[in-house]
Design a protein around this nucleic acid. Structure first.
Lengths: 238, 238
DNA sequence: ATAGTAATTGTCATTTTTACATTTATTTTT
DNA sequence: AAAAATAAATGTAAAAATGACAATTACTAT
C-alpha cells in the first residue's frame, strides 16, 4: 500500500468553526474535548480524516455528529500545519467554517459532547491553535459577508429586515442607518417580500422576507458591498 | 511515536501555482514531472511535506528549488483531498499560489526540471487534479487583484502605468479606459512617481513609478476596487 | 379616539464613476 | 528647423451611487 518510498505520513484532521445567530448575538459552538490530551478543555469540534473520505466529507460528518444537520453551508477555511500544533503527535488540520440556522440545531445530539454556544467576546481558552482558527474564521466571515450574501445562511427561512440588520450590526460591531440598509438589501433583488408581518418587536410590524433561492445561487459570487465604509470595518483578510 | 491509536496517516504534499508576467502576457510555470507515475507529463511544481516543516515552509522550499527565489508572494490557496487524486497512494495536497517578478527568476536552476512558462490559454494537460488547481488559482487571482494591490508583485520595482494597465487588461481579458485607470491607481496613494521615463513604447515616454512600500503594506487589506464593472469580470470565487 | 412605537419611504447634497475630449511631451520625418 | 506622428497625461461633464437625515405610515395599547 505504501508506494512512495521514504516519505513520512501524517495524521490529518478537520476542525469546524460553527457559527449561529440566536436573534441577538452571533455565536460559535464549542465542545468539551473527550480525549487526552487536554481532556475536558474547550475545543472546536473535529476529527481525523478517514481513509474512505475527503476532508470535505470528514467535515460534513463531524458537523452532522455534533448538530444533527445535513446540507448546511460549509466552506474550507485554511490548513494549519505548524510542526508542534498537536503536542502528542504531528497532525495537520484542515479548518472549515459552517453557518447554521441555530434553531435547526438539535440540542440532544450535542449534549453528548457537552457543547455550548459562546458569544465571540466570551470565548474561553481553546486547545492547540483553535483560538487562531476562530480568529481567522471570524475575519473571513466579516470579509466575505461584506461582499456576498452569506449571513442569510444564519437566519430562518422567513426573516425581517430589522432582524437581518441586527445580525449585520452584531457581525460588524457597529450601527447602520436603517433606511439605507433596507434599500441596499432590497436593491440586490435577492429577497421576496411576504404578505405577513412579525409583530413581536413593534406595533407596526415588519414584513417577512424569504430568499429568492434562484437569484441567490446565481448571484452569490457577485460582489455586492453590503457594508458602507467597508474599510472601517475590516481589519484584515485571509 | 504513533500515539493516536488506530488512525490512518496520509501523505501530505504541497503544489505551487507560480504566476509571472513577461510584460505582455500572464503566465504560469510548469515542470515535466521527474518521477513515476506520469513521468514526463506536465505538472505543477510540488513535493512532500517533511517531518521538519510546516506546509508553508514546504511550499517556500519547493518554490526556491524551482526558481531560486526567496521571500516572494506566496499564499495558501486550497487543500485538495479527493480520495483517488493520486493513483499510487492516497495523498492530500495543499496548493499555494505564488506571484513572482519573472525577470528575477533564474533560468538555469529550473532547467533541471525542464520548466516552461505557459500562457493561461495554452496550458497543456496536467497530471492528477492540477488543472483544477490552476483554474482555482486563476479565479482567486482575479478576485483578489480586483480588490487588493496584488498584481504589483508581478512587476519589477520600477514600472509605468501603461505597463500596469496592460497587466490588468491581460488578467481580466478586457480593455480599460486609460484616463480612468491611471486616476484610480494614482488615487490609491500606493505609488511614488519617479523622475525618469520609459521611452521604449512611445515618443512622449511614460513616467516610472515605484510602490510606496509602507503605504502598500498598510493598505494591502483595504478593499480598493481596481476594476470597473467588477461583476462582469468575475465568474466565481473560492 | 389618541398617543406611542418602530417600520417604511422620501429628500437632497456629496461623492464616485465613467465616457469621451483635449492637451502635452517627445521623436521622427520632411 | 518646422511639422507630423504618437502615446501619455490631464480635463470635462453627465450619470450613478452613497449617505445623512427627515417625514410618513401602520399598527397596538391606553
Amino acid at each position: 500500500m505504501l508506494k512512495y518510498q521514504n516519505q513520512t505520513r501524517l495524521l490529518v484532521a478537520v476542525d469546524c468553526i460553527i457559527f449561529g445567530f440566536d436573534g441577538n448575538k452571533l455565536k460559535i459552538l464549542l465542545i468539551k474535548r473527550g480525549l487526552e490530551p487536554k481532556k475536558d478543555h474547550w475545543s472546536l469540534m473535529g476529527g481525523f480524516v478517514q481513509p474512505s473520505e475527503s476532508t470535505d466529507e470528514a467535515a460534513n460528518r463531524v458537523l452532522k455528529q455534533l448538530t444533527g444537520l445535513d446540507g448546511v453551508y460549509l466552506e474550507q477555511l485554511y490548513t494549519f500545519s505548524a510542526k508542534d500544533r498537536d503536542p502528542i503527535e504531528r497532525t495537520i488540520s484542515v479548518a472549515y467554517f459552517a453557518l447554521i440556522d441555530i434553531h435547526q440545531y438539535e440540542k440532544q445530539i450535542s449534549e453528548e459532547y457537552h457543547a455550548e454556544w459562546f458569544q465571540l467576546d466570551q470565548i474561553p481558552e481553546l486547545i492547540f491553535d483553535h483560538s487562531q482558527m476562530v480568529a481567522m474564521a471570524r475575519e473571513k466571515l466579516r470579509y466575505k459577508a461584506a461582499l456576498h450574501p452569506l449571513l442569510f445562511e444564519l437566519l430562518p427561512a422567513k426573516f425581517t429586515l430589522p432582524l437581518l440588520q441586527s445580525l449585520f450590526e452584531d457581525v460588524y460591531e457597529t450601527n447602520f442607518d436603517k433606511g439605507n440598509f433596507s434599500r441596499k438589501i432590497i436593491s440586490t433583488g435577492l429577497l421576496i417580500k411576504q404578505k405577513d408581518k412579525d409583530k413581536t418587536n413593534s406595533k407596526k410590524g415588519a414584513f417577512y422576507y424569504k430568499l429568492d433561492k434562484k437569484h441567490y445561487k446565481k448571484n452569490f459570487h457577485s460582489v455586492l458591498k453590503f457594508i458602507p465604509n467597508l474599510n472601517n470595518h475590516l481589519e484584515a483578510e485571509t
